[in-house]
Amino acid sequence: MISARLRREIRSLYGACCGYCGVCEEDVGSALTLDHFQPVASQGQDTRENLVYCCFACNAFKGDYWPDDPNLRLESDGYLTALTPAGERQIHLLHLNRPPLIRQRFRAQERRLERRTHQELRRELEQMEHRLQRLERLFPFDDEGESSL
């Protein structure tokens, strides 16, 4: 039996998003499920290291499959590419390139890029403000814009 505390910990660890396809609770409008990466049928345990927060669809598609080496790469268009035969099996079994997931991953990448760009612009603005403050200390001006030097 998985404790409520461990469920919360796993949910937090995965940021409330599916560990397989990346869809988040806010995308589906409800909590996701827990999956045993190594299935109980294959002696998988109820441990933090073996539990994956995942959406219902991925949990159902995965079933008792136990991927030994998924090796996937997320492309810029949201498509997942397998790097190994095990990755190909995982993509196929979990239907990881179904159109709604590709769109969701693409939108998520766009949001991350927007946040990163916003953060970079904010840092540049802060640096410019610091430079301006240093210049104002070096070359003071009065309220009329006249140099007081």
Rank of each mutant, 00 (worst) to 15 (best):
N59L: 05
N59R: 01
D35Q: 06
P85C: 04
L13H: 15
R123G: 00
M128K: 13
Q133P: 04
R103N: 08
C18R: 13
Y79G: 07
Q104R: 15
L96V: 12
G29M: 08
D64P: 00
P67S: 01
A16W: 14
R131E: 14
L51E: 07
H118Q: 10
R131D: 06
R123D: 12
E75L: 11
R107M: 06
E9R: 15
G19H: 07
F56M: 05
L6Q: 12
P85F: 12
T33G: 00
R48E: 13
C24K: 04
P140Q: 04
L6A: 08
G44A: 06
P85M: 13
F61R: 05
L138S: 09
V23S: 07
R103P: 02
R134K: 14
S148K: 10
L94C: 07
E88G: 03
L121W: 08
E9V: 10
W66Q: 13
L135V: 06
L132S: 05
Q127L: 07
H95V: 00
I2Y: 10
D142N: 15
D35M: 04
E136G: 02
L101R: 07
T81P: 00
D64G: 01
R98E: 03
L93Y: 05
V28W: 13
T84M: 10
P85A: 15
R115Q: 13
L96G: 00
D27C: 12
P85L: 13
E9C: 12
E146R: 15
T81N: 02
R98W: 03
T47K: 09
G22E: 08
Q127K: 14
E129W: 05
E120W: 07
T81F: 08
L83E: 07
S42R: 00
H36Q: 06
R5T: 13
L132W: 07
P100I: 04
L72G: 14
M128E: 11
I10D: 03
S147E: 01
I10F: 08
H95F: 02
G29H: 11
R131H: 13
D46P: 13
C24R: 08
G15Q: 12
V52G: 03
T84Y: 14
